[in-house]
Amino acid sequence: MKTINKLVSALFLLAVLLVNAQPPNPGSGGGGVGPGAPASPIDMYVYVLGMIAVMFIAFFTKKYSSNKI
């Protein structure tokens, strides 16, 4: 059983190392963000997403801490 766990862990680690979320660079196009370059749409909601994350953390902390009593 321990050998299977080690094998699964090694395969998972290998799969994680092989996965690359960024597409390859198409070539010599600058690609930098500067004046006139379109910004990522998520940039507009960074503060809202941060506040939602804090609310989720507070909610689940309160929920699970009250269940232990």
Rank of each mutant, 00 (worst) to 15 (best):
M1E: 10
K2G: 15
K2R: 13
I4E: 10
I4F: 15
K6G: 03
L7G: 13
V8E: 08
V8I: 15
V8H: 02
S9H: 13
L11T: 14
F12D: 09
F12Y: 11
F12S: 12
F12V: 15
L14I: 10
L14E: 02
V16P: 00
L17H: 04
L17E: 04
L17C: 10
L18W: 05
V19W: 07
A21P: 14
Q22L: 08
Q22I: 06
Q22W: 11
P23Y: 08
N25D: 13
P26K: 04
G27F: 05
G27Q: 04
G27L: 02
S28M: 03
G29L: 07
G29W: 12
G30C: 11
G32N: 14
V33W: 05
V33N: 10
V33F: 15
G34E: 09
G34L: 08
G34A: 15
P35A: 15
A37I: 09
A39H: 12
P41F: 07
P41V: 04
P41K: 03
P41R: 06
P41L: 06
P41S: 03
I42Y: 10
D43I: 03
D43N: 10
Y45W: 09
Y45Q: 01
Y47R: 08
Y47T: 10
L49G: 13
L49H: 01
G50F: 09
G50T: 12
M51D: 05
M51P: 00
I52N: 00
A53D: 01
A53T: 13
F56M: 04
F56A: 01
I57W: 07
I57T: 07
I57K: 00
I57P: 01
A58H: 02
A58I: 15
A58P: 01
F59D: 00
F59W: 03
F60E: 07
F60M: 06
F60I: 05
F60W: 13
T61R: 02
T61F: 09
T61M: 06
T61V: 12
K62H: 05
K63R: 13
K63I: 04
K63L: 15
Y64V: 05
Y64L: 13
Y64G: 02
S65T: 14
S66T: 08
S66G: 03
S66V: 10
N67K: 15
K68V: 09
K68G: 03
I69H: 04
